[in-house]
Computed example of a mutant assay.
Amino acid sequence: MATNDRQAREARARLRTYQARQEVHARSVRRRRRDNVVAVIALVAVLALATAAQLLYFGGGPGSPEAEPSATPAPTATPQPVPSADLAADRTWVAALTLNDTTLSVELDGAAAPQAVSSTISLARSGFYDGLACHRLTTEGIFVLQCGDPNGDGTGGPGYSYGPIENAPEDGVYPAGTLAMARQPGAAESQGSQFFIVYEDTTLPADAAGGYTVIGRVTDGLDALRTEITDFGTADEVPDGAPVRPVTITSFVVE
């Protein structure tokens, strides 16, 4: 009888040990499943953020690297009047844009983008651009140098904003030498003084508002821009940041 009792106790002990091990195993399985779910959610979130960053590359820039090249802000409580689109006079304008000691010969297409070109001419002739920094350089996938912000951080403008988007390429391809206006993401009427220079062929995806207004092109000096400014990269060696070699608009003369 004593032997039978001992065997029964041992059997119950083995059963409890087995059940405990099964519970530990079940908890481990549940924990692994939970960890896997969390990892998948985190991966999806990272991919979503990366996609959003690409689409909004120029929301902070061309558009803004406001790809979009820092966004032009909405008008202040007392906005300045927007220059008349008639100023562009439906013709091509010749300009000299000097960055540091590098002069770019530029053509502005007043026929294709009358409102944006009129604004650019008005600001250039008033001396608005003189002394302003080019605050943003992108070096991976999107290759632009963004300029024209009086605040120097992508948040400034001329005291007015305007639209619509004009002369944006349907295929989203902006060839090297293109000059285009930065704007806020999804806001066609948010163009102001900020513009960007495409120094290598770049594709910029359109957003809800469309593409980016092309105002003209660099006809000479693009190689000097690369060797003197963009080839040095960004200050923190990131793909989207301030140029390592500070860039100032010395002058912007339109004829």
Rank of each mutant, 00 (worst) to 15 (best):
S70F: 06
S70I: 05
S70G: 10
A71M: 01
P73T: 05
A74S: 15
A77K: 13
P79L: 06
P81K: 04
P81V: 05
P81A: 06
P83C: 12
P83V: 04
S84Y: 10
A85P: 13
A85V: 10
D86Q: 14
D86R: 12
L87K: 06
A89R: 00
T92Y: 01
T92S: 09
T92K: 06
T92W: 03
T92Q: 10
W93H: 03
V94F: 04
A95H: 04
A95M: 04
A96G: 14
A96Q: 15
L97D: 00
L97Q: 01
T98Q: 13
T98G: 03
L99T: 04
L99H: 06
L99K: 02
N100V: 05
D101F: 11
T102N: 09
T103Y: 04
T103K: 07
G110S: 10
A112F: 02
P114Y: 12
A116Q: 14
V117L: 08
S118W: 02
S119L: 12
I121E: 02
S122V: 14
L123P: 01
L123A: 10
R125P: 01
Y129S: 05
D130C: 15
G131V: 03
L132M: 13
L132P: 00
L132F: 01
C134F: 00
C134R: 02
C134H: 01
C134A: 02
L137H: 01
T138W: 00
G141F: 01
G141N: 10
I142C: 03
I142H: 08
V144L: 05
V144R: 04
Q146H: 09
C147Y: 09
D149S: 11
G152A: 13
T155G: 07
T155P: 01
G157F: 00
G157Y: 00
S161R: 07
S161E: 04
Y162W: 14
G163A: 05
P164K: 12
I165C: 06
I165D: 03
E166S: 06
N167Q: 12
A168L: 06
P169W: 09
G172T: 15
V173M: 13
Y174S: 06
T178C: 12
A180S: 13
M181F: 10
A182S: 06
P185G: 07
G186H: 02
A188I: 09
E189D: 15
Q191N: 11
G192Y: 04
G192T: 05
G192H: 04
G192N: 03
